[in-house]
Write a protein that binds this DNA or RNA. Structure first.
Lengths: 186, 186
DNA sequence: GTCTATACAGGGATAGAC
DNA sequence: GTCTATCCCTGTATAGAC
């Protein structure tokens, strides 16, 4: 790992920041380059295209989710399994840049349409919702399970201007998500 | 109301469709014009800028939300008031293009940064969450209330490939949202 | 590994004819 | 009310020097 490793990482950091704040399409490679004090051409040395930067950002995340889904498929579909999926997912979100990546994807959904790696991630997310549901579940139950997962993303970008620690976020998300994956009261 | 009224409406219809499907930035005025069989310049007769098209789309929606928030502020902050807010919001979403507008906004959040009318709507949404909360509420409760509102949006764009009727969607959203605005069990 | 310079396409927007 | 023609800007991407 030479000096280029550092530059590559710095590009990723600045890119995810700007993509999230200003939008993917609204952020030009020139802006990213300027924020780093390099030129556009330097970026093209590290990433073949703009899309490639996004791909590099989502790869880790996709693997994590896939590992969880694979594990979940080997378990019985019980309430306790669902709770364990939620716990593992929540814990996973605290690692690396995972919640930043999810935020970036939530906020740029349409702009990322058709990007190979992004579509792949979308499919994995659908797989995750699926293992939280059974074929006969009502729309309300399916919605509840989707909201459980979304709550674990959303907690990282709602509750702004409140001063909330990371620990409080994790606790709040778990609380809400666990409630939502339990059978509806009734 | 001359023939231009029709064209204006058709522009809005095509615009919201393409903005939602492909993304706001990814959709050019040329595309919208071609889909309508007119030219870019024709669009500029009806709307001063691209941003203006978005503004025209969000105006009705912003007024609706504001009316609800104004009403809510005059009520006591009781569980029953929260439930009534949810019922009214849910009902409102079934009118006009409201849920299409929300979907469009959800999917293009960053791209719409800084657009006057869009920021205005964002503030109104924050106001809505606020009337569902009290100052001392925990992060978990605030998250729960945010998720209640989001569930009423999300139900219109999750649960795809299931064949779900509009009535079923409304029922499911109400079910989940009402649960989420009630005090946490505990 | 990073630069300058440049090609090339496509965007939003305007002027003025019909 | 809609057209053609055009301006100007910014985007992605590449070639080739250092």
């Amino acid at each position: 790992m030479g000096a280029h490793t550092n530059t590559r990482t710095r590009i990723q950091e600045v890119a995810i920041k700007l993509f999230t704040e200003q939008g993917y399409e609204a952020t030009s490679l020139r802006e990213i380059a300027e924020a780093l004090g390099v030129t556009k051409a330097a970026l093209y040395y590290h990433f073949k295209t703009k899309e490639d930067i996004v791909a590099s950002l989502t790869e880790d995340r996709a693997e994590s989710i896939q590992a969880l889904v694979t594990w979940a498929k080997e378990q019985p579909r019980t309430p306790e399994t669902r709770r364990e999926i939620v716990r593992r997912y929540s814990e996973d979100m605290t690692r690396g840049r995972h919640h930043e990546v999810m935020r970036f994807m939530e906020r740029n959904q349409t702009a990322l349409r058709g990007h190979g790696k992004v579509e792949e991630m979308r499919e994995r997310m659908t797989g995750l919702i699926d293992v939280l549901c059974e074929p006969g579940d009502s729309p309300a139950v399916r919605l509840r399970r989707s909201m459980a997962v979304f709550a674990m993303h959303a907690v990282w970008f709602v509750l702004i201007d409140q001063n909330v620690t990371d620990e409080q976020r994790i606790e709040a998300a778990l609380d809400v998500a666990l409630e939502l994956v339990d059978a509806p009261a009734g």
